[in-house]
Amino acid sequence: MNERAFVMIKPDGVRRGLIGEIVSRFEKKGLKPVYAELKELSEETARTHYQHLKEQLFFEDLIQYITSGPVFAMIVEGRSAVANARALIGPTNPVKAPPGTIRGDYGSDIDENVIHCSDSFDHAGMEIQLFFGKTGMLQKL
């Protein structure tokens, strides 16, 4: 069954000109970009997005980083979109991400790991709503 997932190329990936290469990898995996925006995140959006990390010592640095430049936010669609997208991007820490994954190939360290993807279908819905304000864009197809 097809579903949709939220993916965000972070400021380091945008600065390094990786948008085209990363989108191409999703397309080759069979995940079709159905909506995308290059956008600057407000501090409010960043804090809401990362609220689950607010007790961590690195939280303020994370907010500063994610708002340091534009991000490329997109919705991808395809079979098992969340699971397939997460497999494509690799583990959070690029040092532990295998070659062939986006983070393994392009991430420099855990602080600048190039990309984010929803970790569940439910979180994808919340992130799509937060980043795009769109309702009904997550339905299973």
Rank of each mutant, 00 (worst) to 15 (best):
P98I: 14
L38W: 05
L38M: 13
I102F: 02
S118W: 08
K39Y: 08
S120Q: 09
K140M: 11
L138S: 15
E27Q: 15
Q64G: 09
S120C: 11
S80K: 10
D61P: 00
P70G: 10
P94N: 03
I110W: 00
I19H: 07
L138W: 10
E112F: 04
E27I: 11
V34G: 05
G90C: 10
E60C: 00
M126R: 09
A46F: 09
A124P: 03
K140I: 15
E21F: 06
I110E: 00
P91Y: 06
L88W: 00
M1S: 15
D122M: 11
K29Q: 00
E37W: 00
K96R: 13
V71E: 10
Y35C: 10
F26Q: 05
S118K: 05
K134R: 13
H52K: 08
I63S: 12
A36I: 06
V71R: 07
P99L: 14
L62S: 02
A87I: 03
G17R: 06
P98L: 11
T101F: 01
R103W: 01
F121Q: 12
G136E: 13
G133N: 12
M137D: 05
M1N: 13
L88H: 01
V95L: 11
V34N: 03
G69N: 12
L138Y: 03
I128W: 03
T135I: 08
R47V: 05
T48N: 04
I115M: 06
M126F: 02
V23C: 07
S120V: 09
I22V: 13
P94R: 02
V23K: 11
I9M: 08
F6N: 00
Y65Q: 10
P91Q: 12
Y65M: 07
I110K: 00
G17N: 13
V23Y: 07
G136W: 13
G30Y: 07
L41Y: 05
Q51E: 15
I115Q: 02
A97Q: 10
H123F: 08
R4P: 02
R25E: 13
K96Q: 14
R25Q: 14
D122Q: 15
S80V: 07
D119I: 00
I75P: 03
L41N: 06
L31C: 03
L57A: 14
K28S: 13
A81G: 12
F131D: 01
S42R: 09
E37K: 03
R86C: 03
K96P: 01
F58Y: 09
I63V: 15
E37Y: 04
D61T: 01
M8N: 04
A85L: 05
R86D: 07
I19W: 06
M137S: 04
H49G: 06
P70C: 11
H52S: 05
G133F: 12
Y106E: 02
H116C: 03
G20Y: 08
D61G: 00
A81W: 10
L138E: 13
E27T: 14
P91M: 10
K96F: 09
H123C: 06
R47L: 06
